[in-house]
Amino acid sequence: MTDIKLQARNVDVYYGQKKAIDNVSIDIDNGLVTAFIGPSGCGKSTFLRSLNRMNDTIADARVTGEILLDGEDIYAASMDPVALRARVGMVFQKPNPFPKSIYENIAYGPRIHGLAQGKADMDVIVEKSLTQAGLWNEVKDRLNDPGTALSGGQQQRLCIARAVAVSPEVILMDEPCSALDPIATARIEELIDDLRQTYAIVIVTHSMQQAARVSQRTAFFHLGVMVEYGETSEIFTNPREARTKDYITGRYG
């Protein structure tokens, strides 16, 4: 019971007049990886973005319903979206390092939030974050190279390190491996499993194998509705809903 990190209650998301998410309720637990699967365009990213209020940055997007982080409504007037996003970090589909050095990419968030007292402190944060993202050994000798000079997989791990650097409680990942090759993907999947000890992780993926490999809980979305949510092993071996079964068995995609 105390392990629930995020709670969504009857959440609808609209783009202008168009309803993209219809009445979704879900509990997301600490210490677990929760995967969102479903055919593309079904609203996975939209729902994910409503969990850290990134939808606020889209002009005509509107969220109704309740989303609670540790029991606190994140859409309440008292909640500052900027502070919220420091607690609920996000990794995007396409690696998007800033056009700055590797070091500065990591230091960016801590500096904004005043997490480091002085350069030595910041060095510690940078090293710790890069280590957590499994990137330290590869880049420790070239922290001043531009982040954009890394390979795609390294860039994505840099983005994960960047998110980790502000010590969030939840990390949202929107198809983090869809632009990567299988080896880079495998590294990120290992990394996700390590990070789960420290953060609640929500990952959107279009690959069912990936969901099966990295997640403990899976939610299946279809046409803006959450069709089914449960233990990953249950969903993949014994789905309750016909639509889930059809999707899992590749009847449509």
Partner: peptide
């Protein structure tokens, strides 16, 4: 994606613009 990356780290809009 650049400004998204910054906003998602909890930067404000003007911090994102400036930095």
């Amino acid at each position: 994606s650049m400004s998204d990356g910054s906003l998602a780290l909890g930067a404000t809009r003007s911090e994102t613009i400036k930095k």
